[in-house]
Computed example of a mutant assay.
Amino acid sequence: MSDIKENLKQLPLGDWHRGLGARMVPFAGYEMPVQYEGVMAEHIWTRTEAGLFDVSHMGQLQLTGEGAADALEQITPGNLSALAAGKIRYTLLLAQDGGILDDLMVTNTGRNLYLVVNGATKHDDIAYMRDQLPDHVTLNHLEDAALLALQGPKASAALARLDIQPLEEGWPVPADLYFMEAGPFMWNDIPLGISRSGYTGEDGFEISVPAEHVVALATALTELEEVRPIGLGARDSLRLEAGLPLYGHDMGPELLPVEANLNFALSKVRREEGNFAGAERVLAQYPDNAAKKRVGLFVDGRQPIREGAAVIDEAGATIGNVTSGGFSPTLQRPIAMAYVPMPLSETGTAITIEQRGKKIACTVADMPFVPHNYHRKPKL
């Protein structure tokens, strides 16, 4: 264990976390805070106030060059070339056979494309993209940037108290951004990239900041009464309640988008064009022709089920698997995600899970388990 710890990368905020009493654990090759005062308390605080997460392990990338969006579309199924300046799109990085290599956020900054990819896969993602993208498109890894996520119903009011101003004329202040919008800003002469996004199901923001200034920003935020630092434990329980899949657990290279219940990431125009990596195999499953599907589960009783538990049929044969599970602090009951045969994926279907020799009754549930609280633009 000591050798593992010595090989872990350190976050720019590592000493700051330890100074606040965080319990640090290995995650995605980094030493990261799993909790401060306890997962349950931190989860509830984020649902009712505003929680500050350090997600600097994530990969922040920049694509520049003529036709960068068109080039990226060759390995993603999102309609990125139509993405307006200041807008964000969730998409999937696909292998040549259509398997999911990662999920990512793509922002059109008006000057280039800004990508956020998962921390555990970022170096493989970079190598794959550099191999697939044309020479005139340049990919830069923004290794000198940290990333914070401020999440919760009071996140907008808290951020407004820091007097953050648009970097360019015509951009709104952060509080006036809607969900999946972003812009360039300045705070105390420090440039920030702020998006109204996150992975908790709550309203909130992700803030890209030069690593040398992240301590100042994190300190200023947590000095606000409604903001507390939150660890990985609550981030996981929050995203599970929100029905959001975690790469490496609920999706991976052996899975296709339809199986992963990510049909919304296959935009209509790209389905019609059919010119992205693995399109023939991916579209053969669309919209519901896959043999299996990721679903949500309500678990009977109080015992949580965990990743790796088996979905079984009446004869006891394994027919699927649990990929995420835990106790929902908001609902006060165990919930999970699992892959089940497509005929068993309808809401209300009874499912049996076997965990450590014990059979547990479950029911297929709609996701998200807890309604999203995003600040969406009103529909006209």
Rank of each mutant, 00 (worst) to 15 (best):
T222N: 13
E254F: 01
L147Y: 08
S328H: 04
V340P: 05
N112W: 06
P33L: 11
D103Y: 02
G248H: 13
E272N: 01
E202G: 05
I353G: 04
R89K: 09
G357D: 05
D203V: 07
R196F: 03
P12M: 08
A265S: 07
P26E: 00
L162T: 09
P245W: 03
L80R: 13
M58I: 02
D135M: 05
V370W: 04
A82R: 13
P287R: 10
N321H: 07
L217Y: 10
A127C: 05
G296C: 07
A317T: 15
I126M: 11
V117H: 06
S156V: 05
L283F: 10
R130V: 01
A149T: 03
V106P: 00
E254M: 06
I88K: 02
E212S: 14
E254W: 04
K154N: 10
G99A: 04
E223I: 10
A160K: 13
E169N: 06
Q62S: 15
D144K: 06
R235E: 03
E31L: 02
P153M: 12
L63R: 04
P378L: 08
A218E: 10
E31I: 02
A127D: 15
L113Q: 06
A50R: 12
A182N: 01
V364F: 09
A220W: 04
D15C: 10
M105P: 00
K358E: 15
P378R: 09
Q35R: 04
A220I: 00
P253R: 00
D124V: 05
A291K: 15
H372L: 13
V25C: 02
A336S: 13
A310Q: 10
V25P: 03
R302E: 14
K5D: 15
R111F: 07
L8T: 04
Y178P: 04
F276T: 13
K87E: 14
S2L: 09
I100N: 07
H17Q: 02
I194V: 12
I75K: 00
F27G: 09
A277G: 03
G67P: 00
S345A: 15
G29I: 05
A350P: 07
M24W: 01
G110H: 11
H213D: 11
G252V: 12
F27L: 14
N108E: 11
L92T: 08
I207V: 07
